[in-house]
Design a protein around this nucleic acid. Structure first.
Lengths: 239, 239
DNA sequence: CAAATATAATAGTATTACTATCATATAATA
DNA sequence: TATTATATGATAGTAATACTATTATATTTG
């Protein structure tokens, strides 16, 4: 299944950077009413909603406040997203798609399973840095939103239906990619999917603990989650 | 710090079971306006809120609906809890206090650090069973609430203030107990707190995945989370 | 039995999460 | 250029939520 689309129009003689600029994260079109990438207003909705959710939290965030902030109207935002829950799902999907893109890009050419997994854990657990390829999205801020709000997007009574509707495909594919890499390192390890899901969920959680409950973690800026998870995963995969 | 209070009034000649019946989970009194254990209405609020949150989910749950359900008035419930967020914190604290009680009870007498940790992981990751000592609380249902809603109690903008106010002490102490047991098994392991927090959070998450995203876990009713976590923890603690 | 306390009933407020309608601005096309 | 879609904005309205306040009525306790 192809989900990261490369729009390679007129790519001759274009430098690599320009090529990468045309990468686009493909997101389930049931998550929006109108594609926010298709207009200026749409991009402002994405850009400012990230800033606003980060600032005041998802609970206090409303379309009315967002409208005021971007000098637009509440009703116009409803033309892009049915409700803020779907906007959150959209933002999260974008984030996981962006991470997946980096994962595939960085590990594709590594033949050795252990070296590949090692690099993959780095990608999945490192501190987020800005990606200039997407000017209207602040990935650092989006990462913080995912840390603080992602769980709320699936801890709902509607999760089974929304899962059926494919709202979590990107995340699930990411976990499966990690799971496969673990199995490639040790085919007899009995819990690759559990370990992969623990890695993704756990990485978010460790960053949260660093910010708010530092007595519950040994991770710091120097002693990073990456080191903790590399140790954990490779020890688990040992016989 | 003593937090599990044993009210051992008139305990001579009482059988063990009766003794255990007088165990009480002590909860930060800032979490309620009036102690729900102190009256019949209070206990009904606790009992029915567990059932109702389990049934319709925390988002849809309101004090008005609860009032109708228990044949009482919305305003009366507000005399026990400021809002539903604090009620959730109360229920979660009770749950973790109850687990801590079992942990201490079951591991206290085990001298060997590995055997002790092994038993502790069992307590923390096993499927919940009903405890007849607390008639107004359905622990199986409460466990499901914790799985589905606990994250929402700390993924808020107020988390730092509420942490200062001691709303999470029981959970933190539980994580620390597990962390200490891990250090006792291997004093040179550099991430005992991270591993302990991963264990508690991860156990909830694996049960959630079993219910809603079974492709993301290898855990089943037969191949339990307990086995996964025992393998994970003891491998991590190996040199 | 009086007084204190707990609970119930009712009303009211600001905000949320929308839906609906109509007006206007901008872009596409004939 | 005029016509016509289409996008956006402005305004209004609704049911529900999350409370607060007040008053009335039980129930418990001294």
């Amino acid at each position: 299944m192809i989900v990261i689309l490369l729009y390679l129009t007129n790519f001759k003689n274009q430098p690599m950077e320009k090529l990468l600029q045309s990468v686009r994260i493909s997101i389930n079109d049931k998550l929006y009413v109108k594609d926010p990438e298709s207009s200026n207003l749409g991009k402002r909705i994405i850009k400012e909603s990230i800033i606003m959710i980060h600032e005041i939290g998802f609970e206090s965030f409303t379309f009315k406040k967002l409208g005021t902030e971007i000098g637009s109207n509440e009703s116009s935002i409803y033309r892009y997203f049915e409700n803020k829950h779907k906007l959150l799902l959209y933002l999260a999907s974008w984030y996981w798609g962006w991470l997946e893109y980096q994962l595939v890009f960085a590990t594709n050419s590594i033949p050795d399973p252990s070296a590949k997994l090692d690099r993959a854990i780095e990608i999945m657990t490192r501190a987020t840095e800005i990606d200039t390829a997407f000017t209207h999205i602040d990935e650092v801020m989006l990462n913080k939103i995912v840390i603080n709000e992602y769980s709320k997007s699936y801890l709902t009574k509607e999760v089974d239906q929304e899962n059926k509707d494919g709202y979590f495909v990107i995340y699930k594919r990411l976990v499966n990619r990690m799971s496969t890499m673990m199995t490639d390192v040790n085919p007899s390890y009995p819990y690759p999917s559990s370990l992969a899901s623990s890695l993704l969920e756990g990485a978010l959680h460790q960053y949260f603990l660093m910010d708010h409950f530092n007595s519950l973690t040994n991770c710091t800026a120097k002693n990073t989650p990456t080191e903790y998870f590399k140790h954990l995963v490779f020890h688990a995969l040992k016989d």
